[in-house]
Design a protein around this nucleic acid. Structure first.
Lengths: 249, 249
DNA sequence: ACCTGAACACCGTTCAAGT
DNA sequence: ACCTGAACACCGTTCAAGT
């Protein structure tokens, strides 16, 4: 008897969710580039065209894969102080996404929001509104969170290509120090200075929480200055002032 | 006589920069998906393989396309108050990227930083350092900016798919109002309530500047509370406090 | 009526054969 | 020595032919 293929056994019929979960597994194991309709079909022991009965095209497959991941996010905590509720929920989303390193990029490539996505966003909006935030400030805050609401920030250009040869590495470092003095100064002062790489050795989780707290504190400040109606605030930022006053132009 | 192909005339020889600029033009005109080695070669009137003498693979082509765009960013303004310098520089980057809607996605897909990228980042780091920011705070601030330092935020799931049929649209709106009450409440309170679409009718430029100012104000506050050495701050955020004190764990 | 192999119109990249 | 057509190993998706 021939061994069944790697995926689900051939007896259990496919469905949308099973296809999506197989896609997630394949992406986790072999990277998102390995997720092709043909590859996934082979993984599931079916002919490529068979997948088109469950998802109408590849985009829909990717949508479903993201849905499957977002369902892992923990529900709203019982504790309902707005700041810690937001914090908890967003950090939980982060935990879910960290299990799937390919997910942020796929999420940002999606065109339209699925119900699962809207549920999550609705829950965040609800936290602001229940805390008494104005609808305008809620709206601005959601935009300011941006993709951070999903628990990730896309690190842009994290590591410059680094050669293996130590001599070359030293030469590159010297060249770096000459051309990018500020970056080098900043990087060599980091907590782990044993590392020569430019942006290595920094704690992603810390940086994420730092930026999240900065935003949440900012929201709180604007919210308070709004209901204390002291619009003669000492901040010089016109956008923030006008947002608090609820006046856009 | 046969008309020369769309791109550069066949007399002027190709080089790295010309290939990159042709890639940018092609992406602007026909979208990033139209930028294939084969398509681009045809546009330039050469055989596909000819491109491989100027870029060693497609990733390098995309790197060069991004470089070409980043060179459009205005240099540091003479006015060197840190906040307005950062603001000016980042909003200038935004202007450059807005001309090329495909660019944000390509930027976020790059693996390593090119010299042009590092130049820009070094200039931002330099602004913080010259203003007397601690190296740690500078580091956190750069991370908090994230991809916003390039003048964009990747809007995640902007528009839920909307049907054309008005009757269907009304039905969808009703379903929305029932399932996503908070989103609907927030959206219908927006400045342009004539729009039924959920996240339509909001001013991207305003939202970008709002979030940027929120971050810059946050940086300023942390910077001031650091050199005034009042560490018994009234903020409850542990990450922010420990960052100010320069202590990470 | 259902299923699917083969085909279509593409990719990025390699390489050997031709000049 | 240089250049490049053809080939390789893939894509997503369509569709007609077979059962």
């Amino acid at each position: 008897m021939s061994t069944p293929p790697k995926g689900a056994s051939p007896r259990t019929p496919l469905n949308r969710e099973r296809v999506a979960r197989a896609g997630v597994r394949l992406a986790d194991e072999s990277g998102i580039d390995a997720v092709s309709m043909r590859n996934l079909a082979q993984d599931l022991g079916v002919v490529p065209m068979a997948l088109y009965k469950h998802v109408s095209n590849k985009d829909e497959l990717l949508d479903e894969m993201i849905n499957a991941i977002l369902l892992e996010i923990e529900p709203l905590p019982a504790d309902f102080e707005w700041k810690s509720a937001l914090r908890h929920r967003i950090l939980s989303a982060r935990q879910a996404l960290l299990r799937h390193p390919w997910a942020p990029h796929v999420i940002e490539s999606r065109q339209s929001a699925s119900p699962v996505v809207l549920d999550y966003m609705d829950s965040l909006v609800g936290i602001f509104i229940k805390a008494g935030f104005s609808l305008d400030l809620t709206h601005h805050a959601m935009h300011a969170l941006g993709s951070r609401m999903w628990g990730f920030i896309q690190e842009v250009f994290p590591t410059p290509a680094s050669p293996n040869d130590p001599a070359e590495q030293a030469a590159m470092f010297a060249h770096f120090a000459a051309r990018y003095p500020n970056i080098i100064e900043m990087a060599t002062a980091a907590d782990h200075p044993d590392e020569t790489r430019t942006t290595q050795g920094c704690d992603d989780q810390f940086e994420f929480e730092f930026a999240l707290d900065l935003l949440l504190d900012g929201f709180e400040r604007l919210h308070q200055s709004a209901w204390s109606s002291k619009t003669h605030s000492r901040t010089s930022s016109t956008k923030l002032e006008s947002a608090v006053r609820g006046k856009r132009n």
